[in-house]
Design a protein around this nucleic acid. Structure first.
Lengths: 338, 338
DNA sequence: CTGTTAGCGCCTTCAT
DNA sequence: ATGAAGGCGCTAACAG
């Protein structure tokens, strides 16, 4: 007769001529408590049966599922993917498995996924807020699990966070443009709302330019997919500073793509007609016309650090809420040349 | 006294003043077997306790975890991400949860992840072979679970597959170039190996051009990250057809990026010096110089269909192995203009 | 060092 | 229409 389904710990025990406990011990690294003989028998039995312990049963028993929930608003965003990559690497190292949930930026999906994650008993949650709508993010507060936010904070909710040093990054970017001799700079982001990331970047932009009174500072918030508003904003900015060297800072990668498209529509060339600098590195940045200067975030590291942080919470770390900010790196290309 | 951990089915039963069985029935949709009164009590108890059944326990008991394993070689590839998106959508509709495993194209990771998926008792597996190395893919055969391949087949392994109609796509692409008056065309892909996708595309390219004897057909296989070979190949192609209108077909999106970079390095402009057409749509295709003509795959649908297929297998469908090929769509831009 | 026993939370007979 | 009891695969006392 043939065992049809997967072998269980009992099968292994029987095959090794011992009890389940010893097998369990073997599996859990308490191998020093086993005699060489027994250890070998178990080892062979496992190999012969091609046995793998059931995480389901394990999770049920110990409450440790070794599962970490990831909530991502837009998996289509390269930033998110890079971060994900870092998270995965860290998961592998730490022996966790990521349960990836892409909310697709659909409002209400957060709730669905939180329930889902709870039902699978994840031990912690990493939320990549990039591209996430504010309402959606706010809905996340309820969770009682260890949780860490990436890129953004939730106003009024103390929670570990890892992201970019927005002040350093925006200051670096702005100063670069000043040094390149631009006389009017437009800071473009999605509508600020209460999103700290946007606010901080804009704030640093303003603060920096206040030290250079001869440079005009403007800023505007445009919805990511509202190309009309974007066109209008850009046209206006361009028209109202005739004769001056103008530049645009785009506050994130997705927006930079839209801005580049808009400039195309308007017949403006970055590098010659107008300067352009975008947050977030883009794989195509060097291929678009004369190239686009970007402010590169250490995305992979951010993901990696975020996971390390949840894990430390899972292991019991109860220090006060921690905030990690990584430095960005300016990658200079043709779009901000003199 | 406060219950610290999550409520269980027993808690609900107690709160509703009934037994676990009835609650279980309620949860499993056998609600018609319950009296209105009892049903309501249960409903309230669940709401009050904010109870969610444990998928762990459920999976353990019934063997149905509602988990689907996804194996992805390179999550960084936009194609893979779009496919993933379709898979997720389908998962949501069908009540499954994807367990995403990114092998990062590291050999041996497949084994690690297969074990992992087994240990979580996934009910089926979707393998996105895009960008995956041959050896890695071959390692996947062992799985006894319902499995469907995306984009590529494993030689000598009968398995459901969903991907592109390579013949239609490559023929369309090639004919477009002929019509645009190109006189020498280079088909560029990664080394063919036994990868059916690459072979079929090249084959259709050859077959099509054999109908146009005045057009020279060349093809070459270059490793994705070997920029020296790529440069040499392109330089040679360009040099050996002086005076003729030349074009390049790139067999996938990742390669197109490398080709574009190489052309830049060589000082060649697509659209004017040489034609360029790439498989896979790129978000930046319109922004790169005069724009790059692409052959767009219905990636989202491919993912969606793949998931539907595994689920149908999970539900017991035992028809012979099925192969679904979707049509590509040519998106014409400046790089192939006359 | 090793085995026995009692659940983890749920579903599923089998009675009632 | 409802409930009690047993067991899924595993781990964690508790004995030996």
């Amino acid at each position: 007769m043939v065992k049809s389904s997967r072998p269980t710990i009992s099968d292994v025990a029987r095959a090794a001529n011992t009890g389940k406990t010893s097998v369990s011990r073997y599996l859990n690294g308490e191998q020093n408590l086993l005699s060489d003989d027994l250890r070998q028998r178990i080892e062979q039995a496992i190999a012969r049966l091609d046995y793998r312990p059931s995480q389901m049963a394990r999770g049920l028993k110990r409450g440790r599922t070794r599962l970490i929930g990831l909530i991502i608003a837009d998996i289509t965003n390269p930033y998110s993917v890079d971060v994900l990559s870092g998270i995965e690497a860290a998961c592998r190292e730490q022996g966790f498995t990521p349960l990836v949930c892409n909310t697709n930026n659909e409002i209400n999906q957060e709730q669905h996924y939180l329930d889902l994650l709870r039902s699978y008993q994840v031990e912690g949650i990493v939320v990549n807020a990039v591209g996430m709508r504010e309402e959606a993010l706010n809905r996340l507060q309820q969770s009682a699990l260890p949780m860490v936010l990436i890129d953004r904070k939730i106003p009024g909710f103390a929670c570990d966070m890892v992201g970019l040093d927005n002040n350093q990054a925006a200051t670096t970017a702005t100063e670069h443009l000043v040094q390149q001799g631009f006389e009017a700079i437009l800071f473009l982001s999605e509508p600020l709302g209460t999103v700290n990331t946007r606010r901080e970047r804009q704030e640093a932009f303003r603060r920096t330019l206040s030290r250079y009174p001869h440079v005009r500072a403007e800023s505007a918030g445009v919805p990511l997919h509202d190309s009309e508003t974007l066109d209008t904003t850009l046209r206006q900015f361009h028209a109202s500073h005739r004769g001056m060297r103008k530049a645009i800072i785009s506050a994130n990668g997705a927006l930079t793509l839209q801005v580049a498209r808009a400039l195309r529509r308007l017949g403006l060339n970055w590098g010659s007609d107008v300067g352009l600098l975008g947050f977030d590195e883009l794989e195509w940045a060097e291929l678009a016309g004369v190239g686009i200067t970007t402010l590169k975030q250490p995305t992979w590291q951010i993901g990696y650090a975020a996971l390390e942080q949840v894990v430390s919470r899972i292991e019991g770390n109860s220090e006060p809420v921690r905030e990690q900010n990584f430095s960005g790196e300016l990658i200079i290309r043709g779009s901000t040349a003199r």
